[in-house]
């Protein structure tokens, strides 16, 4: 029975020692230890949250970059296209202008040629007429140089007229 009967002396000492131990450990051990552990846990949580936030920010930034890049690419493409169009337009313009010019030149040249031709023809006609008249004069002179010849001519003419 002795073994299951609490000895008050030992209860007394256990009480004193345990209460002092509880007080000392609570004040000088558990408080700083748990404080540090809690602080560290908070730090870790914060760090994790920050990492998560940074990650999200990075993703957003990346998306933004992608967008920017896309826009830039589109801009570049449109610029190139515009430049190409302008160049083509310029070339086309130049071409058509040149053609127009050439046509104008041709037209004027043709006109000039035509007028020159007309002038030349009319001059030629005048000259030919003059020549003809001269020839005719000379012919007539020779035809009519003798009486026979005059008569023959008259006959011929009269014949032509008769035939008509």
């Amino acid at each position: 029975m002795e073994i299951v009967t609490p000895d008050y002396g030992l209860v007394f000492w256990t009480g004193i020692v345990f209460v002092i131990l509880l007080f000392l450990l609570a004040k000088f051990a558990w408080k700083p230890i748990l404080g540090a552990v809690n602080a560290r846990e908070e730090k870790i949580t914060e760090a994790l949250e920050l990492a998560e936030k940074t990650k999200a920010e990075m993703t957003a930034l990346q998306a933004q970059n992608e967008n920017l890049l896309k826009e830039a690419r589109a801009e570049r493409d449109s610029m190139i296209r515009e430049a190409k169009e302008t160049a083509t337009a310029m070339v086309e313009g130049a071409k058509s202008k040149a053609q127009e010019e050439a046509e104008k030149v041709m037209t004027s040249a043709r006109e000039a040629i035509n007028s020159e031709k007309a002038a030349a023809i009319s001059e030629l006609k005048t000259q030919v007429a003059a020549f003809s008249i001269e020839i005719a004069e000379k012919l007539v002179k020779s035809e009519l140089s003798s009486a026979d010849k005059q008569k023959a001519l008259a006959d011929k003419l009269a014949e032509d007229i008769n035939m008509n």
Binding site: D7, W13, T14, W30, P32, I33
Partner: peptide, 30 residues
Amino acid sequence: DFSITKNVVSLLMVFVLLILVMFSVAKFYK
């Protein structure tokens, strides 16, 4: 009888051991 028996000495040993160990742990964090 409030004698310092074998168990009371053992109790004090545990007390000292715990104080030494836990205070050194606390000191590390401090």
